[in-house]
Design a binder for these strands. Structure first.
Lengths: 251, 251
DNA sequence: TAGAAGCATTTGTTTGACAAATTATCGTGG
DNA sequence: CCACGATAATTTGTCAAACAAATGCTTCTA
């Protein structure tokens, strides 16, 4: 009978959901590790006592969650991905974009959340940064200065590097998801060309000021300068984005 | 030929991924709205020119993302869920738990992120609260006082209510995901009985102090008292949780 | 009218097959 | 011996048809 295990014992829930839970459990307990290759779908189905389409429903869900990946061919198959914040942030970005689309989230809310994450990130980075972090952050500042014609507000590598230097992966995940969402928005709605050069110049300058405070381990200054920088940047977003996103009164 | 559309035009990507994008697009553009019922899988498959198993792979992915839901029977089918932060927070909770399990995130990191979200949430709530918010928050404080035998640290309704009062749905989403994760942890690792009553008493008291500051629209005090409260609570978690999570040096 | 049996509808699952993509293999020619 | 191209093998991707299970509705009966 469908839904029965090897001993004929009916388990709770839908079969493909049990398979998802099973595989997640194998990863949680590290019996499955990043890079491991799962058996071919047909073997997996047989060993789990279910059909291949059912197994596939579970695999596709875990793929969408960036937990597994698959490819065809003899060296292909289904592999366990690295379990880290990057995959979650990627997923979160899509969810946030959808919330914006259906007006269950506004740009001011998103931007305020960015302030709430990015400012402490800068402060923490000043306290915890390594010399390697300083090197990486400065490189993103220099890169900005030599890049031409690209809207600086869509360049998130600096903020990403700062968040990484905070050594808090939860904070970094939240910040990344917001950064990626804003980049997607910036790609859709181009910043007016006339204000761009001036904005870019000031933004670069501010990036450098934040960087210097972090390099000097001056958390308070890093936070203050990050705040100034975000306030300028928000003005640019506010101008470029469609009116319907600017709908909360007190921000 | 497989992968061809109705006009014989091959589209890019895998079929089930195109279906996911299609349905997400229908929701983004509001041609599909929450509560809408999709055609039966077999009809949907026919109208998309694909097979039912392929449609199902897409539907199962969207179900796992809390975008769709399904049930059997004549009044059942596949329905568009409410697109809001709740579904995303639910998903995020599971992802955070997995990151903790595989040591790609530590409890101190998670807790620090909680401070970074919950303290501004309290400050914002003081500025933006409505009378209705005050009513709701006070009810959670009173509930705590009358509840017996439950670890107060696992009771997140107060913090949820504060985050809601902040009127920032992005912040509320982040906070909810952390709260839910911590509740799951608290359910797994019971707080020692001997310290519980005292912790509970103090925690209740602190909840009330935060509440009063929010009711008085005193943001600075609300933030300060929330900080004190979280510092106490963290000590309890730190004692109860397995040693392996306490592994960052400077927190 | 109330309850129970049967019916219709929809998702859940199975089986089997073929298509497409990709790499390994092997033979052939230089 | 090496390069290279055709071929075979492996794995995921897709399709087809059917039956099982769940659920609400209808209808028949007491």
């Amino acid at each position: 009978m469908a839904g029965d295990g090897v001993n004929g014992v009916r388990k709770a829930g839908k079969t493909y959901e049990r398979i998802i839970e099973h595989l997640r459990g194998e990863i949680s307990s590290r019996r499955l590790r990043p890079g491991d290759r799962l058996p071919p779908e047909t073997d997996l189905a047989r060993s789990l006592g279910v059909s291949r389409p059912t197994v596939r429903e579970a695999l596709k869900v875990l793929e969408s969650q960036n937990v597994l990946s698959s490819s065809t061919g003899p060296t292909g198959g289904t592999f366990v991905e690295a379990i880290d914040g990057a995959g979650v942030a990627e997923y979160l970005k899509d969810s946030i974009s959808l919330l914006l689309d259906v007006d269950e989230l506004t740009l001011p809310e998103l931007w305020q959340a960015r302030e709430i994450t990015d400012i402490p990130a800068a402060e923490l980075a000043a306290a915890r940064r390594t010399d390697q972090d300083v090197f990486v952050i400065e490189k993103t500042v220099d890169m900005d200065e030599h890049k031409e014609g690209v809207a600086i507000v869509s360049d998130i590598s600096f903020h990403r590097a700062v968040a990484e230097a905070s050594k808090n992966r939860m904070l970094s995940l939240f910040a990344s998801s917001i950064h990626m969402t804003l980049r997607t928005l910036a790609e859709r709605y181009i910043i007016p060309e006339d204000v761009l050069p001036e904005v870019k110049r000031i933004s670069q300058q501010q990036h450098r000021l934040v960087f210097e405070a972090i390099a000097n381990r001056d958390g308070a200054t890093a936070a203050a300068r990050m705040r100034e920088h975000l306030q300028l940047s928000y003005g640019v977003y506010e101008q470029a984005m469609p009116r319907r996103w600017n709908c909360t009164p007190d921000f």
